[in-house]
Design a protein around this nucleic acid. Structure first.
Length: 640
DNA sequence: CGTTAAGCAATTTTT
DNA sequence: TTGCTTAACG
């Protein structure tokens, strides 16, 4: 492909962005304006024109999906190998750095990653061992406290606590830091913070990476948090060139620590940074765009942009007022039944997951197949995590989280009493649970029955570690599944989901086999697989066939598009949500609505209900203010 | 040890 | 109302 070919498919603004002279650049890319296209074409352009070698380029995204898509599209554009090109998520790249430089990062070589669930489990332990009330200081709140600090690059020692509550939380933070470091595990936030510190505290290393990655590309920059910003700024150094793509109107993760202010910071920090706007939309009809534009114009805090299209105005936006949530769901199902096209082009979007049930019922009733996004992902499932915990323990017996998880899973007669003694001893002697358990047996402190059960467990793990070392990954998993008794446990289980769990365990072996095939050059395949399970927990989907109506929250719809979109439950208190009515959060709710509207290509239906059943009582609901913010001339009210 | 009743909270979730 | 956690019981 020649250079001009590369540019043929781009409009003026896109071409300006792709071919801009080297320097810092920020691209304000509206919904459906070709943001990924610009990003990937820019990278291809840099390589094609010899302005950069592939190993000088780093591209960072938030999701694995986006990273994979980007890599693929770059490959399609270039049709040549791109050695040393790093494309990945913030967490993925941070992790990569930590694996390479584990020693400088002060981590054990075999450090493990824990997901949010593991983190809460561990925190629960920590809170209890501090003899605090875990109803006041819930693991969830503690996790939030700690993650929020880490996201701001604050270690426990850097936190200033001025009231009793934060003092207690800080205590938990200290104890948690300690627990993580001694058992060699890192949580998601730690990946970022640790990798930031690694670079910050090792000038030679920093310089090496600064000069290697001269070109930094960031997708969805509006979603970056403080530590991600600092990490980027650090890596950028004096000579790096930054290319970020963002849409401030699609910032919907403030509650997770995303700092929309980072956009402003960027402009302040680099006064020579140029801004290019992509406002031509290739997705939606004129009416849909005008509705979106009018709505988002109500927000004070934005850079400002106006989407436009060469496409026709299209249908009006339909607004339906239902008597109750069932009526609303019936309306949606009826509309869907009347649709002549493919069902997968239809999405039902809602603010809260609880809303999905009524839609399921109405779709089921009318025999319309659907698929719900949400729920557990593959590697988050109970039986999968149990199996992986056995693997972790086999490889690394001092992993306390794994130890606690599988000690009595499946049930083997080791109760809370025994576990309590193990914990206590481990705490006193600062040893791992594994060591404490061995010690308890050796010193005969347990009753005969408990001692025998515990001994059998320790023996099981030891035997496994010996037998499993030389086996391939899938054989390892096969072995663990049987020896642990998990398979037998689910085979005996008469509950409905037991069969599915068995199938999932089967699937785990397949996934392992596949993973091993794809990673033949990796030395420590087990660790790599465990990392993969933690960092890429799989798709959040249920149901396989592909002609399904798509049901999901507005948040999960970001980045997707559908011919027909229903946004439901547009009522004050639900959307915008009760808990987000202050000025700042309200703007984020409005952006969420904007995201929802701009998912639609051809048809947009908005619905609200006069009453809604919530928490056991029926509430009277006012229509959402967002409905009034859409100009009347674009709207058609549906009459019953 | 496993089952059951009572108590309680109740957005959104890229990694 | 549902779903989850924990204390109490068999």
């Amino acid at each position: 492909m020649t250079q001009s070919n590369l540019l043929n498919t781009l409009n003026k603004a896109q071409r300006d962005a792709v071919t801009a002279p080297l320097g810092h650049l920020m691209i304000l890319a509206g919904a459906g304006s070709g943001k990924t296209k610009v990003l990937t074409n820019r990278i291809a352009w840099l390589i094609k024109t010899g302005q950069a070698k592939s190993n000088q380029i780093l591209a960072v995204t938030f999701t694995n999906k986006a990273a994979n898509e980007m890599r693929e599209r770059i490959n399609v554009l270039l049709k040549e190998p791109t050695p040393g090109l790093w494309v990945g998520t913030f967490h993925g790249i941070a992790h990569r750095l930590l694996r390479i430089h584990w020693e400088a990062a002060q981590l054990p070589q075999n450090f493990q990653i824990m997901d949010s669930e593991d983190q809460k489990r561990l925190l629960k332990q920590v809170i209890r061992s501090l003899e605090m009330d875990d109803k006041v200081f819930t693991p969830r709140k503690a996790a939030h406290f700690i993650n929020a600090r880490k996201d701001q690059a604050l270690r426990a020692k850097d936190v200033v606590a001025d009231d009793n509550y934060s003092n207690k939380m800080l205590k938990i933070y200290y104890a948690y830091e300690n627990a993580c470091q001694t058992s060699g595990i890192v949580d998601f936030a730690e990946l970022l913070l640790r990798s930031y510190e690694l670079l910050r505290d090792n000038p030679i290393l920093l310089e090496q990476y600064q000069s290697r990655f001269e070109h930094l590309h960031v997708d969805e920059f509006q979603d970056t948090n403080t530590i991600q910003y600092q990490w980027l700024a650090l890596l950028l150094g004096k000579f790096g060139k930054l290319f970020v793509v963002f849409d401030d109107d699609q910032s919907i993760y403030g509650w997770r620590g995303a700092k929309i202010e980072n956009i402003q910071h960027l402009q302040n920090q680099f006064d020579n940074i140029s801004l290019i706007r992509l406002e031509q939309n290739y997705r939606s009809t004129g009416n849909i765009l005008n509705a979106a534009n009018a709505l988002i114009a109500r927000n004070q805090d934005r850079l400002g942009k106006e989407l436009w299209t060469k496409d026709h105005a299209g249908e009006p936006i339909f607004i339906f007022k239902a008597y109750n949530e069932t009526d609303e769901a019936q309306y949606v199902a009826n509309r869907i039944r009347a649709w002549r096209g493919r069902r997968q082009d239809i999405a039902i979007l809602y603010r809260t997951t609880a809303q999905s049930r009524v839609f399921e019922e109405s779709l089921l009733q009318k025999g319309i197949p659907y698929r719900i996004y949400g729920g557990l992902r593959f590697y988050e499932r109970l039986e999968i995590k149990d199996t992986l915990a056995y693997l972790r323990l086999v490889q690394h017996p001092h992993d306390n989280g794994a130890f606690e998880r599988v000690l009595n899973t499946p049930k083997r007669g080791i109760g809370l009493k025994t576990l309590g003694m193990i914990r206590e001893l481990a705490n006193q002697q600062t040893m791992s649970l594994w060591q404490a358990a061995q010690h308890l047996i050796a010193t005969k402190q347990l009753k005969a029955r408990a001692a025998s059960s515990l001994f059998k467990f320790l023996d099981l793990i030891e035997q496994l570690s010996r037998k499993v070392t030389d086996l391939s990954l899938d054989k390892k998993i096969e072995r663990v599944k049987i020896a642990s008794g998990l398979i037998e446990h689910y085979k005996k289980d008469t509950k409905q989901d037991a069969q599915r769990r068995l199938e999932n365990l089967e699937e785990l072996t397949n996934a392992a086999r596949q993973f091993e095939e794809n990673n033949q050059n990796v030395t420590d395949i087990l660790t790599a697989f465990l990392d993969h399970a933690a960092l890429e927990a799989g798709e959040r989907q249920s149901g396989k066939s592909n002609d399904n109506v798509q049901l999901m929250t507005l948040h999960s719809a970001k980045g997707l598009e559908f011919k027909v979109v229903f946004i439901c439950g547009l009522e004050e208190g639900l959307f915008p949500h009760q808990n987000s009515l202050d000025e700042l959060q309200l703007e984020e709710e409005r952006r969420l609505c904007y995201v929802g509207i701009t998912r639609a290509r051809n048809h947009l239906h908005l619905s609200h209900s006069e009453t809604r059943y919530r928490y056991g009582t029926r509430d009277v609901c006012k229509p959402s203010r967002f409905l009034k913010e859409i100009p009347k001339e674009l709207v058609k009210l549906i009459l019953k």
